[in-house]
Design a protein around this nucleic acid. Sequence first.
DNA 1: ATTATTTGTTAGTCGTGACTAACTTTTATA
DNA 2: TATAAAAGTTAGTCACGACTAACAAATAAT
Lengths: 225, 225
Amino acid sequence: MKKLTKSEEDYLKALFHLIEEQQNDEVGTNQVAQHLDVKPASASAMLKKLRKKSYIDFEKYGKIRLLPSGRNLALDMVRKHRLWETFLHEHMHFEWDEVHEVAEQLEHIDSEKLIEELERFLGHPKFDPHGDPIPPSSGKYQALDKPSLADLKVGERCYISAVNDHSSDFLRFVKELGLALSSEIKLEETRDFDGSLLISFDGKKINVSRKFAQNVTVTRIPGKK
Amino acid sequence: MKKLTKSEEDYLKALFHLIEEQQNDEVGTNQVAQHLDVKPASASAMLKKLRKKSYIDFEKYGKIRLLPSGRNLALDMVRKHRLWETFLHEHMHFEWDEVHEVAEQLEHIDSEKLIEELERFLGHPKFDPHGDPIPPSSGKYQALDKPSLADLKVGERCYISAVNDHSSDFLRFVKELGLALSSEIKLEETRDFDGSLLISFDGKKINVSRKFAQNVTVTRIPGKK
DNA sequence: ATTATTTGTTAGTCGTGACTAACTTTTATA
DNA sequence: TATAAAAGTTAGTCACGACTAACAAATAAT
């Protein structure tokens, strides 16, 4: 599990809340900017960064969706926030309207153990002082996240270990490209403007979409850079 | 009481600890840098910044001393750190060697109320899990800090409300300058290289040392900029 | 369907707090 | 005391995450 900056965590949490508040599972750049009290240009830059890390996905001028890894991280933030709110209310004599501001700070504390202990200390509460549900610990699932082709850094090499999309279209496309499980693949370039990737294998270079890359699970080849 | 950045807080705390560890009350740039695991150049820049804010004092190539306001802030950090360590040890099942890392994060949480409540919750402990003393709340004293000439921003105007150094040398110097309690003073410039200030009053412009300025308590004249 | 408005992106700038490299001052050693 | 070493500073760069201004795309309104 990677370490995120405070800002990255805030953006993922914002996306999660915006998706929850609407029934729609897609949000726009401006909504995110407004929610975090930053300008759209700032949000645009950050969202691009989160896309490169495969926490979210969107196409240029398109709506934003949370990917599983991003959703798990957001859930973790919500879990921490609501546990801290419960602590502040029940043990620190904070009123319901005072807890949020401080919980905003406490939720960024990075300690798996602290959160587990805090939850035990609080008696494994199911709801926070506002009545909102506290998500369960997700640490176990997150550890199972597999890297995809889209997670590679430029210059890294890998083997394909699996493909996640089993549609016939997808599989036919893989076959046409000449990709096989034994192919050694190198990420040559990434293109920011549309998120696509230039990869090389067997002496060929081809361009693949980000969506495609996210469906190809890989095993990194270490050392070779 | 001003808001400090995380870095500023870390530097003040480092200075406090370095001064405590030695019997000497003066520390050097390199010591600070080493303690915080940064390069001397980085420490140098930060220390200059803290000097401008009158939390510390030093002359070029000289040793660094904590001024009262800086010391109060450092004590506040130590207080918070040790209260959190106590909390982690006594209620979160952290071992003595696990508490420090997380307390380093928790000490930056900004909430007066939380710390007061935490102290009450812990039963007003006098010592942390390592046996180190927990400083008392200093919020009350800090509120009494008076601004000095050295606290002004360029362009600000003020009246002198008091002088803190009552030595005859100092008072004679004040008199020679022609400064009086009724003089309206304007801060024209500050010189980073030695910390001295250019002030104007009664149509005259004179240069005074930082040390001098810190001994002159002032009342800001608002609005006039 | 064409224009207007809203939404989103890019390019370039700024402050913060790191960094390296080069330099100056102080302190220690020969 | 002259020189070497250590300590401290400056100048210039970088990454991060904000910002504004200008532009492009998508959606709404005429």
